[in-house]
């Protein structure tokens, strides 16, 4: 059981800056995120897109913003638990008992949800029949590439994941690459490589096709793909892999007894507390009159939620407001030498 003053769910910009604010006022905190990397939507959705509305930063990309935020909290050595989804939040006496899907348990008076629009899950194939083969012969991510050796693999998608895997798996498997249009959005060098392999007959390329059906008894035996002109082609295949990016799902948050409206959590604007004492929501996932889904709003919300956490984490102490420019205590926490 890990004891902490506050547990933050979500390692996006809001979660990272909320952690900064908690540590600055002398509280301990840990962060849990479902993704395999830090940065949330900034890293997952737009790492290369420039952002122009971060105060005092005229222009930066999602990746740069994330790296700066990581730098800003570096001195605090905050434990960040990646690849873990918080599945359960339960009241136990005066604390919240938080469980992740990897079996970690946290006990904390404060849970701060900085979960963006929920957790990222892979987008799936449209035909209903695909569900029956999911995790067996229809996959949305690759854990062990050895299972494809000597088999026929049909890869769907036009981005880097689809193209990279098509190139990689074509070394030891028969690969079909299927995409809904002629253009690919992956890196040009990979697109060139795919075209080269297609010319050589190593990869079978099907463009302007989409998956129409999946056939087979227990295991996948063949797929039907449909051309833009309506014609259907049947291809024998052992596996179908879909790389359509990730989608945000609210996920388990829906079960924690919070007031939820249109995938967002209702909070007050003093503490950014939900209808449950000691559970806060900040950033894109919170909702209140006038809410703006901007990164800068997330920073403000996190700063106020952090002060609210102080009352529950240190019930016998009085919180004293201090500036970073003048406070010795804060400078000590930051490890700044004077």
């Amino acid at each position: 059981m890990i004891k902490t003053d506050a547990l933050i769910i979500g390692a996006g910009p809001t979660g990272l800056f909320t952690a900064h604010q908690l540590k600055l006022i002398g509280l301990s905190c840990e962060i849990v995120d479902n993704l395999d990397k830090i940065g949330g939507q900034c890293i997952e959705l737009y790492p290369d897109k420039p952002i122009y509305d971060i105060p005092a930063v005229p222009e930066c990309t999602g990746e740069e913003l994330t790296n700066n935020l990581i730098n800003q909290i570096k001195a605090f050595n905050i434990p960040i638990h990646l690849n873990e989804r918080v599945d359960e939040v339960k009241k136990e006496n005066d604390s919240w008992l938080v469980k992740t899907n990897a079996g970690k348990n946290f006990s904390t008076p404060n849970v701060i949800i900085a979960g963006g629009v929920g957790s990222f899950e892979p987008r799936k194939f449209a035909p209903k029949e695909c569900e029956k083969f999911e995790n067996q012969s229809i996959l949305y991510s690759i854990k062990d590439k050895k299972i494809f050796e000597g088999k026929t693999v049909s890869i769907f998608g036009g981005g880097d994941s689809a193209l990279d895997w098509a190139v990689e798996l074509s070394k030891n498997s028969k690969v079909n690459l299927i995409h809904r249009r002629d253009d690919f959005r992956g890196a040009q060098s990979t697109v060139d490589k795919v075209n080269e392999l297609a010319k050589a007959g190593t990869i079978n390329l099907y463009t302007k096709y989409q998956l129409a059906n999946a056939n087979g008894k227990n295991n996948l035996e063949s797929i039907d793909i449909k051309h833009d002109d309506g014609k259907i082609k049947n291809i024998k295949t052992d596996f179908a892999l879909g790389f359509f990016g990730l989608i945000m799902q609210l996920g388990p948050i829906a079960n924690w007894g919070l007031n939820i409206d249109k995938k967002t959590v209702e909070v007050d604007t003093e503490k950014f507390e939900t209808n449950q004492k000691g559970i806060y929501a900040v950033g894109d996932i919170c909702n209140y009159p006038g809410k703006l889904k901007l990164i800068l709003s997330g920073f403000h919300e996190g700063a106020l939620a952090a002060r609210a956490c102080f009352k529950l984490a240190r019930p016998d102490e009085k919180y004293r407001f201090e500036f970073t420019t003048s406070s010795k205590a804060i400078k000590n926490r930051l490890g700044v030498k004077e």
Partner: peptide
């Protein structure tokens, strides 16, 4: 119409 990303052309919902 979910519009998860709020109009940033980043989610296709």
């Amino acid at each position: 119409i979910d519009a998860d990303c709020g109009g940033g052309m980043a989610c296709a919902t």
